[in-house]
Amino acid sequence: MIEVSGLSKTYGDVHAVRELSFRVGAGEILGFLGPNGAGKSTTMRIIAGFIAPTAGTAAVLGHDVAREPQAARRALGYLPEGAPSWPEMTPRSFLRFIADVRGLAGEHRTRRIDDTVARLGLGPVLDQTIETLSKGFKRRVGLAQAILHDPPVLVLDEPTDGLDPNQKHEVRALIREMAPGKTIVISTHILEEVDAVCTRAIIIAAGRLLADDTPAALEARSRYHNAVTLAPTLAADSARIEAALREVVGVAAVEPGERPGQLTALATPGAQPLAAISALAAREGWSLNELRLEAGRLDEVFRTVTASGVAP
């Protein structure tokens, strides 16, 4: 469990984090969203005990990070931004070092290292120096270090940054797999990641908390929530279909879709015009390539929330 309350951090006149409060329980995967420079890394560094807050408190598993730093750190696995390590070491010597510092010993130490190496697929590169590894492997070495002692709380700063799509998929699968019983916080600015792994998302900008909700509820804030996107087979039909869509009850407006040739009918708040639209399409005999319901667009919610500075 992580509890953050009234957290502020200022650097001179710059407010990196302002009055931030939230709580993450076991079993939750919290996505920490925000534009670059929003205060995500600062908050995570405070939770990890790397920097001290100007005001407020943070606690890991009930241990205040300022008053019981050692107990808090033992309960925490932390991946700093950029997954730093020592380039001249090999993953094997690096993980042995982390195990020794964390006080793992004997059979347990061997088992944890073997288990972590297998989980992250580090076997083939165990004896190569870290500086010669690809970005994906370096990131995995950083993750290995964070989960080595099987901590109840994980704080991962941009765990998939710089990975290729396959590696992103693997890391997300790994995070989901570890989730039961653990408290996990990941920061990201990749919104699809929130949908893919998080049970809850917090949006911050300029150090302030702007939204705290499940990904689905955040999507529901989007103007595209319950919107219907369709694509006429013939471009010539487009104007006629658009005019007909405007007349449907529950449609607030019609606008061009994300891709050329698409139309998106926005729903009035609370309305679900999909059924009416598909019935209309059948009745009128529209020839369509696509007809689908939009859950809402996180990127649009993200932009609205972070640009205005207030929740929509």
Binding site: Q70, P84, V101, Q145
Partner: peptide, 14 residues
């Protein structure tokens, strides 16, 4: 410079 200070000083070490 390399950032490993953040890793080292967030391990349970005084």
């Amino acid at each position: 410079r390399s950032g490993s200070i953040e890793l080292l000083l967030t391990l349970p070490v005084q």
